[in-house]
Amino acid sequence: MSAEVPPVPPNATVPPNATVPPNATVLEVEDLQAGYGPYRALFGVSFTVEHGEAVALLGPNGAGKSTVARVVSGLVRPSAGRVRLEGRDVTGFAPWRIARAGLAHVPEGRAVFTTLSVEENLVLALGRRGSRGDVAASLAAVYERFGVLADLRRHRAGTLSGGQQRLLSLAKVLAVPPRVLVADELSLGLAPSVVDDVYENLVALRGAGAALLVVEQQVERALALASRAVVLDHGSVAYDGPVAGAMEAVARVFAGPGVTSASGTRGADTVGVGARTWVAARGGNRPMTGYGEEPGRRRSWRTSRRRS
């Protein structure tokens, strides 16, 4: 499957946009705050993606990478901050409006319609194109590029393997090349050879002039593709700059402050301090007592119950 990835067909390049000069900012995210109900995931995230640039969005699990992707594509409404697409404010737009404005989002995990056939998935992505001929031509271009999918066109997408589904979701994007692609964890759960395939397609897409925002846990892969990296930690930007310095920033965030500063485990000292801050933060001044109380009680209950 990883064998042939033909070069980007000529009709699949991004149409030049007269209003946007090259090297202009395609995607701009400004002081983004977002969450899910009571869950806060982002605490003021800002960065930009320039025209034709690939930016890697890195960070440990739970740092808020996927939430950034979802806010950018409109799936999650931010509680504060702005998202601009080619200078146009799209904050709070419905996802389909943002998609039509030229931003494609491949969400994490399953991103195809499992009850539809492969071809139906692609037709859906092709949008409301004029004539049947256009659709057929675009489909042919996609099938030429992804030979695997051509053979599976009548199969339901749910019967495809994880790697094939991922290729299908990429093919959906490439069918109508976007101005910006937000790719969320494309390598997740895939065999290395399939990941190679996926990344070759990303390279081709960037070559065609699309800007990329690549959310990734496999840091080296992402950095090989990207020209710039943004590292998130606990919902804030920990690093924004060239790829060269990114690896170090990732290692720092990944390891956490504890590993680099003190190698020993945290003792009771830290415990008390942490807990006290918490109480103080709510205006209470009650000292933390009770840790030492009744240390043996649980044991005695458990044993007595087992005896009975």
Partner: peptide
């Protein structure tokens, strides 16, 4: 199947 996924294909759900 998914009201949200379909919007990512530019469909007004």
């Amino acid at each position: 199947e998914s009201r949200r996924l379909v919007q990512l294909d530019g469909v007004n759900a």
